[in-house]
Design a protein around this nucleic acid. Structure first.
Length: 602
RNA sequence: GGUCCCGUAGCUCAACCGGAUAGAGCAACUGCCUUCUAAGCAGUAGGUUACAGGUUCGAAUCCUGUCGGGAUCACCA
């Protein structure tokens, strides 16, 4: 039963009956009633005064009366100015609740999840370079992509999570060169460093040595621009890139070895933060793709060739510029590759939608890419979406890898887990836990807090990462939501001891009164399907995060106001237990969509 | 300079594509632990929604302009 729909249908009826006017249901808008007024749904009458021929208040009165007298949903109503606040009767809320509980019990899918809609969606996220470890910016990317994938899956899509690893190019050669020069055969095992960090170490090493070279050369009178180009180290890196492209055995071997280290490091990080991919693409396999697409476009007259032989696309008609697609020497640029990769993905997994989770500094690039694909008449072009997320700033400003102001992902996670441990130990509630159990909990809380912190902000917006604040476990945070779950778990444990049957979800029909906070929570539960579909449609995990918080907050209100086990009426007692169990289940589901686990005790 | 994004409480973020007295959390202050977990709850204080116009019953939201911040406009990825 969908309350909104029913109310709308009755409002429509009211218009027909009272004003002889046809008002289609889908034109009617309801909004949640503000907390300070009684009611749950509000209908705004201002726009309809012309139809009703009365002022907003009187119209609201009339419609409200009609709904109360003629319908079965609205138990009461009140009018404030032109706002008609509708109070849905307690019996209806109970009925709704039973339906939700039944759905959770019987359905193969949890309440609010959609059956397969037969559509496929590919989500690309993470997409790291193999010359340095993952950092905070990647984490926002990864958590967004992972949560989004879960949400789409719950909405009925078949999802394929992919990761396109940038494993070749000049930046990789830089760490390789530095390793050759200064590495002395070091390995992750011998150095006791994760492979990705080891590669990163040599990337930094290169940059340091390179800067020194440039400085020395400029000191001898060479202009700095020339020095940067002619530095032996830079020349060596460029030379190595050519060797790599020609398949030089020695270079290839080193490249494989170092990349392997890096993958091991990445895998450890992915596992530690609880994310996974269905398929990993490597740029070394795809970087040559796209040239045939360029040929094709040239043949179709969509692209054009300049005198020097380079190939371009003219997007001035679309309000953009001309864009280079292939250099005069026939080599690719970034977008060439992406054109080819787009085709390849589609062949690999014929999707209805494809989402690229990529930072907003690449807005222009994706705008160009999508316009070109459209011009080429690719059938999938309309289904592609760039989930453009904002940068993560630090209190000190933007993260700059060259200035060493990046926040390393592994360090950050470790720090969060440590803080969780300190806080938990200070509270002293889990002294009977084994060391393993405790460690699991710290990890759950630490990573949960971090994920939630990064996910609760609108993805499109630039956000600030304040280490002090991210480490907070009070208020609008994952630990608060996890805590609510743990609280309910305690209730359920006790209820089980008392032999209360949670599976009976039907026998509450005759219950008289619902606590207002209970009603509020049921309303939230009832809204879940809409929230989920909206969040998936708008590619916005932050909506889901907000929902989880609202639910936990509202339940906590109920929790402090109502003492469950003081209830004398066995039916009412059972109801509160079942009610709590449903809330716990919903919290668990929503958090799982966000990629966050939830503890039984904390 | 062109294009795009952003500007909301001291700080971090909301506000359901135009609705009521702009809401949460943090920080500050006040209460509440012998009861199912106080990582909680209730309350006080904090706002000219950058600024100026416009559109209308009604604007943080839409339009115009100004100011401020950011991204991008590479034959880098």
């Amino acid at each position: 039963m969908d309350i909104e729909k029913q109310i709308k249908s009755q409002i429509s009826e009211a218009f027909t009956s009272l004003y002889a006017h046809t008002l289609p249901e889908d034109e009617i808008k309801l909004q949640p009633t503000r907390r300070e007024f009684a009611g749950s749904h509000t209908f705004v009458t201002f726009p309809y005064t012309r139809i009703t021929g009365k002022n907003p208040q009187d119209s609201a009165q009339e419609i409200g009366r009609y709904l109360k007298d003629k319908g079965s949903i609205v138990g009461n109503f009140n009018v404030v100015k032109g706002f008609l606040n509708l109070e849905v009767s307690g019996a209806v809320w109970l009925h709704i609740f039973s339906e939700i509980a039944e759905a959770n019990k019987q359905g193969e899918l949890p309440f609010g999840y959609q059956k397969s809609n037969g559509q496929k969606v590919m989500v690309e996220f993470s997409s790291p370079n193999t010359n340095k470890p993952l950092h905070l910016g990647h984490l926002r990317n990864i958590f967004l992509g992972y949560a989004l994938s879960n949400m789409l899956e719950a909405s009925g899509y078949t999802v394929r999570k992919v990761n396109l690893v940038n494993d070749r190019g000049i930046h990789i050669c830089k760490s390789m060169i530095a390793y050759q020069r200064f590495g002395k055969g070091e390995t992750p095992a011998s150095a006791g460093i994760k492979g990705d960090h080891l590669a990163g170490k040599y990337y930094v090493r290169f940059d340091k040595a390179y800067k020194q070279e440039v400085q020395e050369m400029t000191a001898q009178g060479m202009p700095s621009e020339q020095a940067r180009k002619e530095s032996p180290l830079m020349l060596a890196a460029q030379h190595m890139l050519r060797q790599w492209e020609q398949g030089d055995p020695e270079v290839t071997a080193l490249w494989k070895t170092m990349n392997h280290w890096v993958y091991e490091g990445f895998d450890a990080t992915y596992q530690n933060i609880g994310v996974s991919f269905d398929k990993i693409y490597y740029e070394s396999d795809t970087y040559l793709l796209g040239k045939n697409v360029v040929e094709e476009g040239l043949g179709k007259g969509v692209f054009f060739q300049k005198d020097d032989g380079s190939i371009w696309v003219d997007l001035t008609g679309e309000g953009l510029d001309q864009k280079l697609l292939l250099r005069a020497d026939g080599t690719s640029v970034y977008i060439t590759q992406d054109l080819g990769t787009a085709d390849m993905r589609y062949q690999d997994f014929p999707f209805d939608q494809s989402v690229y989770v990529v930072g907003n500094e690449q807005d222009y690039h994706f705008e160009v890419l999508f316009k070109i694909l459209k011009k080429l008449g690719r059938p999938y072009a309309d289904g592609i979406y760039h989930l453009s997320y904002g940068m993560v700033d630090l209190p000190s400003g933007r993260m700059k890898s060259r200035e060493g102001t990046v926040v390393d992902a592994d360090d950050l996670v470790a720090e969060m887990v440590r803080t969780a441990q300190a806080q938990t130990e200070a509270l002293g509630k889990i002294e009977d836990f084994t060391a393993t159990q405790a460690q699991e909990l710290y990890h759950m809380l630490g990573t949960g807090a971090l994920k939630y912190f990064l996910l609760r902000v609108d993805p499109r917006k630039r956000m600030l990462f304040d280490p002090e604040e991210s480490v907070q476990f009070q208020g609008n945070t994952a630990p608060f939501i996890q805590y609510t779950y743990a609280r309910i778990s305690a209730i359920l444990r006790k209820a089980a001891e008392m032999g209360i049957d949670i599976s009976d979800t039907q026998s509450f029909a005759s219950m008289s009164a619902l606590h207002p906070a209970e009603q509020e929570v049921i309303r939230l539960l009832h809204e879940f399907p809409q929230k989920l579909s909206a969040a998936a449609r708008e590619y916005s995990p932050s909506l889901m995060a907000q929902y989880a918080y609202d639910l936990a907050k509202e339940y906590n209100r109920f929790y402090t106001e109502v003492s469950i086990f003081n209830e004398k009426d066995p039916q009412a007692l059972a109801f509160r237990v079942v009610f709590s169990a449903q809330v716990a289940q919903m919290i668990n589901q929503v958090m799982r969509l966000l990629g966050i686990q939830v503890p039984e005790r904390m």
